[in-house]
Structures are given as C-alpha cells and as structure tokens.
C-alpha cells in the first residue's frame, strides 16, 4: 500500500475538481443554448413545436439523470459511435440542464403580463423583435436567480459521470479510497470541495432573488 499524506489526497482531489468544473461549464453553457432554442420553439405559437418541447421537458424531468447517462453512453455505442465517457456525460448533462432551464424560463416568461405581447404586436413589432426587445430584457431579470440556483444542480449532477467511468471529483474520491481505505476522511473532503463549489452559487442566487423581489 502506498502512503498518501493529507496533502497528497487533497492535491489529487483538487486536480480532479478541474474536470468537475469543466464538465459543469460545458453542460451549463450547452444546456443554456439548447434551452434558449427550446424556449423560442415554445413561444413560436406552433402547437407541433410546443408539443415537442413539452415532451422533451417531461422526458428529462421524469427520468433519473443516471438513466439518461446510461442511455447516451450505451445507446450511442450501440449505434456504432465510439463515445468517450466525457462526451456521453457532456451530452446527457446538456439535455438534462436544457430541460430544467426551459421549464424555469417558461415560468419566468409567464409571469410577464400577456398584454405586452399584444401591445407589441399592435405597435408592429415582429415576433423576434418582441422577444428580444420587450420580453427578454424583463424575463432575464426574473430568471437570473433561479438559473444560478439551478447551476448548483448541474455541478452536483456531474458527480454521476463517475458511474460511467469519467474521472472527476467523485471518481477520484472512490479511486483514492480504494488505494488508502480511508473512506471517512476522503468522502468528507470530496463533500467539502463540492460544498466550496456550490455554496457560493447558492448564496449568489439567494442574494439576487432578494434584490429583484425588493425591486418589484
């Protein structure tokens, strides 16, 4: 058995944390882009598109993230596409994130009075103009706090990528545990690193919520 000092453990965990951060950022940015597309589809007024969006959201909110990961990982390789654990995790988490963000943003856009859409139409604004000039600037203010709040779920979700073999913080923790047999210490460290990543996001979300609630 190799001896690991506490510093060795922490250093290795922090190195693996880079991958947790990279995966979180990829999933969040990808999820936000797909979510924007889905939100636009939902607002387009075409019922076929709205059904697709609703089905998509329902599907990803109604199944475990772990199943989504497995389905992407095993499904794509069954189609003959050789996919790495990183790519599978990034795709699955992007889908997961986009479904939740679409639902969050739906709530935010729905809080705006419908009359604004009608007023914009009367003034001769196109759909795109109404969306980008009238609705979005207001919706973004309302959406900021819950969106940042959801980013905590994304960071926590990346922990599941460890199960399909992607070496991020949680996987590094289990590997170090297998080498040192000090589960109490190692998983406590892992938990604290996640906490250090997530808590500032939670705080920011709470602060923003208070600020915008006060402003209204």
């Amino acid at each position: 058995m190799i001896d690991f000092s506490n510093w060795d453990l922490l250093r290795n965990l922090l190195l693996a944390t880079r991958w947790t951060i990279a995966l979180s950022l990829t999933a969040f940015v990808g999820g936000a882009l797909v979510g924007l597309l889905l939100t636009a589809m939902r607002l387009s007024g075409r019922s076929a598109l709205q059904y697709v969006v609703r089905g998509y959201v329902e599907l990803f909110q109604g199944t475990p993230l772990l199943m989504q990961l497995f389905l992407v990982f095993f499904g794509l390789s069954m189609l003959g596409i050789d996919i790495s654990a990183w790519a599978a995790a990034a795709i699955a988490l992007t889908c997961f994130t986009s479904a939740f963000l679409t639902e969050i943003w739906r709530g935010c856009i729905d809080t705006l009075p419908k009359g604004q859409w009608e007023a914009s139409r009367c003034l001769g604004l196109s759909f795109t103009q109404t969306l980008t000039r009238v609705i979005l600037p207001q919706a973004v203010r309302v959406a900021l706090a819950p969106t940042i709040g959801f980013s905590v779920q994304v960071v926590k979700g990346t922990a599941l990528a460890s199960i399909i073999g992607f070496v991020e913080l949680t996987k590094a923790g289990t590997m170090l545990n297998n080498a040192t047999f000090e589960p109490f210490k190692i998983f406590a460290m892992v938990a604290l690193i996640y906490f250090a990543l997530c808590y500032p996001l939670s705080l920011a979300s709470q602060k923003l919520e208070k600020k915008f609630n006060g402003a209204r």
Partner: peptide, 16 residues
Amino acid sequence: RNTPFIVQLFFIFFGL
C-alpha cells in the same frame, strides 16, 4: 443541498 447525493451516500455507506 450543496453536495451531491452520491457523495452523501458514499459517505454514509463507506465512511460511517
């Protein structure tokens, strides 16, 4: 709320 469920699970099952 700020740590993943799987880490809580591992901490309880392996750590305790």
